[in-house]
Design a protein around this nucleic acid. Structure first.
Lengths: 169, 169
DNA sequence: CAGCGTCAGTTTCTCAAGGGAACTCAGTCG
DNA sequence: CGACTGAGTTCCCTTGAGAAACTGACGCTG
């Protein structure tokens, strides 16, 4: 597999990395998610080259993660705003941030999230959608799904076979 | 901010992207997390150049996300295994995969996760660590945390000010 | 012993992407 | 008119990616 094949791979990690698999895109997304929606504001906030920012924003628009909404006409100028897809991707950024909070700046989190629904400060937790319990390492075992491509990923298939005994009662 | 400053930024997304902010590292991590632990097996599975794989594995070891465990001595050969830090990062990969499942291969998920604790197939959900409810877009509002660097991120500060009214009752 | 195969890199060379800085264009304003 | 703003675009140099070959340290076999 080459980098340019990521978007066609039978692998949803690779397909997602086709969108966010570079150093800057997650940070651009983070800014847009926080409401920093103008080109110059993002550029100044991140200190990213205008060329790279242009490319990244265009890619995000192409992937329908971000949309351009005109805020003036003469000349036409855009706010960059998350789509519904982009909002789901922003939740992934929350998980990324949470990892960084815990391991890379412990006790010095730059941002704290307040959950309006329960009215408490919180952090994101990766949970089981079925039972609601925290998904801890080792507590979830993968098995083949409907789109698993055996010929494309033989080593993954073998790895799945190796953990299959854990799936049996 | 330049790419090389990511690891020092007062931003836990940037610090995490210092580790995984390239196309291949998340996929290498995914493989290691699945138990594909030998150099040649990862290389063949991903079709990545040996040079890039060497660099990526070394970076993961340097970041203490992955450790080398010798499985033979003559010559010395290593299995690559997730550390505890790496296992937490693998949970982030789960979130990445879940986004891809939903938006990029809907109904064709290559892998299904089985939660051993509740004995059901599941998928990861980003939840509120406090109340356990799903964190949905728009339901969490950020505010400054202890490590927030106002001078480094003025636009973020302004964005936080803009959403501050939502924090008040 | 020599030859071959395996595994985990390392090296070389070419092409692609990143990044800094300057430039461009389409406005508005004084 | 000139200056400024905002959103790009272009140019040039540096760095990284990728293909392919090479290397070294073994073990095994005839």
């Amino acid at each position: 597999m080459r980098r340019e094949d990521f978007g066609e791979a039978s692998c949803t990690v690779a397909r997602t990395m086709d969108i966010i698999g570079d150093p800057w895109t997650p940070l651009v997304l983070r800014d847009v998610a926080l409401g920093i929606s103008r080109f110059d504001a993002v550029q100044a906030n991140l200190g990213i080259s205008r060329k790279v920012l242009t490319q990244r924003l265009q890619a995000l628009v192409d992937h329908e993660v971000v949309e351009r909404i005109a805020y003036q006409e003469r000349p036409v100028r855009y706010d960059y705003v998350l789509t519904a897809k982009g909002q789901d991707l922003a939740l992934v950024l929350l998980a990324i941030q949470s990892f960084g909070d815990k391991w890379l700046m412990p006790g010095q989190e730059p941002l704290i999230w307040h959950h309006l629904t329960c009215d408490h400060d919180t952090s994101p937790q990766i949970s089981c959608r079925h039972c609601g319990g925290e998904l801890r390492p080792g507590e979830a075992v993968p098995r083949r799904g409907p789109g698993f491509a055996e010929d494309e990923w033989p080593a993954v298939g073998a790895a799945l076979d190796a953990v299959a005994p854990f799936l049996e009662r």
